[in-house]
Computed example of a mutant assay.
Amino acid sequence: MRAIRCKTYGPPSNLKLEEIDSLHAGPKEVVVQVKACGLNFPDTLIIQGLYQFKPELPFTPGSDIAGVVKEVGDGVTHLKVGDAVFGFVAHGGLAEEVIVPRNACFLKPPQMDYPVAASFMMAYGTSYHALKDRAKLMEGETLLVMGASGGVGLAAIELGKLMGAKVIAAASTQEKLELCKEYGADEGINYTTQDLKSTLKELTDGKGVDVIYDPVGGDFSEQALRGIAWNGRFLVVGFATGDIPKIPLNLPLLKGASIVGVFWGGFAMKYPKENMANTMTLMQWHAEGKLKPHIHKIVPLEDAKEGLEEMMNRKVKGKMVVQIL
């Protein structure tokens, strides 16, 4: 089978498209013939050796997948060969086949095509777990979404509105903010031209925001935290800038605020029943037309490197998808 391989840490241009051996399912595993793989910003960090975990070299990047079950291992009862599915893996998705743990593989709704299915789980699973389970976002609260035009950011905007929050989107260009408003954001902040802290105060009549959703990291994290409300919750989702911020701990103390980690992949593995319940809710909302991933572009496997390059250079709004025929 064909697969994108990372043999040395570095930029996307280092990746190679190669023929490797076909895969076989072990116990509690499913082999999926991949039809589409959604790219996520962490993929650009993993191939550079900058992510929280470093797969053993060589490896195949890619986490968000959709396809058809080719083989099931012992202990898999909810799926059979030929089922259309979607799911997630730590890595391995940018290939014609991938091994998926049974509790991370779900039947694909018939109305959801493969590129959409491959754009769904990581973005919406992460964002719903963050807002529902970690922040316990309440109707009427104010939510700030950082990096709001990315895949998880747009998902957080949609979900925040569905949960009854006022949503403020923060992004780096006016074009990106326009897309955020199409997805339901009530207000927008261009944090390359506007001061984040003072603008948050203006937009909330001095109160600050109740929940901050931050997949960006870097210098903007502290600026956002300085605009949090009393008893606010700061969600640590990721570090798209590549820089892990060092937060002065007097800031949460002065606001009675909480800094809350969000590791959706770990939650999904440790609490599969709870994750399944969240997934069913998301599937229902999608079926009702309330959630719609924004697909920036669909490229073939041969162009996966260029797709990752665009993502790394902050040119992607929503999701970049690799289609594998």
Rank of each mutant, 00 (worst) to 15 (best):
15 L>Y: 07
295 I>V: 07
97 E>P: 01
14 N>V: 09
142 T>H: 08
11 P>S: 05
314 R>N: 03
234 F>A: 13
51 Y>R: 07
149 S>N: 07
224 A>I: 01
134 R>H: 14
288 E>S: 11
8 T>D: 09
183 Y>F: 13
254 L>C: 14
309 E>V: 12
78 H>L: 01
65 I>H: 14
287 A>Y: 00
219 D>Y: 12
212 I>G: 03
20 I>D: 10
258 S>H: 14
122 M>C: 11
115 P>L: 15
130 A>F: 02
40 N>E: 07
291 L>M: 04
269 M>E: 10
284 Q>T: 13
187 E>R: 14
310 E>G: 04
216 V>A: 09
12 P>V: 04
59 F>S: 10
259 I>A: 02
34 V>E: 00
134 R>V: 15
193 T>K: 03
303 D>P: 14
56 E>W: 02
138 M>F: 08
285 W>C: 02
318 G>S: 12
75 G>F: 08
221 S>T: 01
300 P>V: 11
25 A>H: 07
296 H>P: 04
180 C>L: 15
225 L>D: 00
3 A>H: 12
105 C>L: 02
265 G>F: 14
210 D>R: 13
162 L>K: 12
305 K>E: 06
232 G>A: 06
72 V>A: 00
241 T>M: 05
46 I>Q: 14
36 A>G: 03
324 I>L: 05
178 E>S: 04
59 F>R: 03
97 E>M: 10
200 L>E: 02
10 G>I: 01
38 G>P: 13
276 M>K: 15
263 F>T: 15
277 A>L: 10
290 K>Y: 07
229 A>R: 13
36 A>K: 11
172 S>D: 04
305 K>H: 07
90 A>W: 08
180 C>Q: 08
180 C>D: 03
22 S>H: 15
51 Y>T: 00
290 K>N: 04
248 P>R: 14
194 Q>K: 12
106 F>M: 07
286 H>Y: 13
40 N>Q: 05
228 I>L: 03
83 D>W: 08
297 K>H: 15
168 I>F: 10
265 G>L: 06
8 T>A: 10
203 L>Q: 09
248 P>M: 11
319 K>N: 06
294 H>W: 12
311 M>C: 12
314 R>L: 01
143 L>T: 07
126 T>F: 13
126 T>G: 00
95 A>V: 07
28 K>R: 08
129 H>D: 03
48 Q>K: 15
49 G>R: 11
11 P>F: 11
301 L>D: 00
227 G>Q: 06
207 K>N: 05
6 C>S: 04
91 H>T: 09
131 L>R: 06
171 A>D: 07
49 G>D: 08
211 V>F: 10
123 A>M: 12
62 G>M: 05
319 K>Y: 08
189 I>Q: 02
50 L>A: 09
267 F>D: 00
76 V>I: 01
199 T>G: 04
27 P>V: 12
56 E>V: 14
188 G>P: 06
153 G>K: 12
186 D>Q: 06
57 L>K: 01
17 L>M: 04
137 L>R: 02
81 V>Q: 01
190 N>V: 05
121 M>C: 14
192 T>I: 04
200 L>H: 05
60 T>S: 12
